[in-house]
């Protein structure tokens, strides 16, 4: 089985073969043997030079969340068939609600010029206010919400049309 993970904008190909709990992973062309088996509770036990490690994995969409020694690692496993759509979406500078909450204040109007890092909207969740900033320089193409409105996770808030690429760098 071949899997293409994305870690910090880098694609890493992992080829997986196994016999029982003897796994052979080929990561970026290198063979990596791994002794791992799954416990009844669903966690993985792996022996390393530092001793046995217990890891837990959960899937959320394209994300794989791995818990190891108190730390959470987030890996992307993009679905190749959807990759194109995703590319399109992430190319824009749109802002989405990361969690359900209430719009405290929209700081921009349609047609406003914004620069990357500029606060565009203030959201409140659990009595805490968060400022969301524009990711890119551009122009506000649409404002989908108004002050006081309740929003759900993933709701589009503000669309920003990014400035054309600057080739100077």
């Amino acid at each position: 089985m071949l899997l293409n993970f994305r870690c910090l904008d880098e694609m890493i190909a992992v080829e997986i073969n196994h016999k029982g709990e003897d796994w052979c992973l080929t990561i970026e062309g290198r063979d990596v043997p791994l002794q791992a088996f799954r416990e009844q509770g669903g966690s993985w036990l792996v022996d390393t030079h530092q001793g046995r490690r217990r890891l837990w994995v959960a899937a959320r969409g394209d994300q794989r969340l791995v818990f190891c020694d108190g730390r959470v690692h987030v890996l992307d496993l993009p679905d190749p068939e959807l990759a194109d759509d995703e590319e399109l979406e992430s190319a824009g500078g749109g802002l989405f609600a990361a969690m359900p909450g209430k719009v405290v204040k929209v700081l921009v109007e349609k047609g406003d010029r914004v620069t990357g890092g500029q606060a565009v909207i203030i959201l409140e969740s659990m009595k805490m206010e968060t400022e969301l900033a524009a990711a890119v320089d551009g122009t506000v193409a649409a404002v989908h919400v108004q002050d006081g409105q309740l929003v759900g996770q993933g709701d589009a808030l503000v669309d920003i049309e990014p400035d054309p690429e600057d080739d100077s760098e």
Binding site: F5, C7, V14, I16, W23, V66, H73
Partner: peptide, 24 residues
Amino acid sequence: DGDLALAVAAVDEHERRSTGSGSG
């Protein structure tokens, strides 16, 4: 330590796809 996490994520994904379910 992301390397170990990546390896286990891969192994877990393999199980998820071959058995129709992942860990959990």
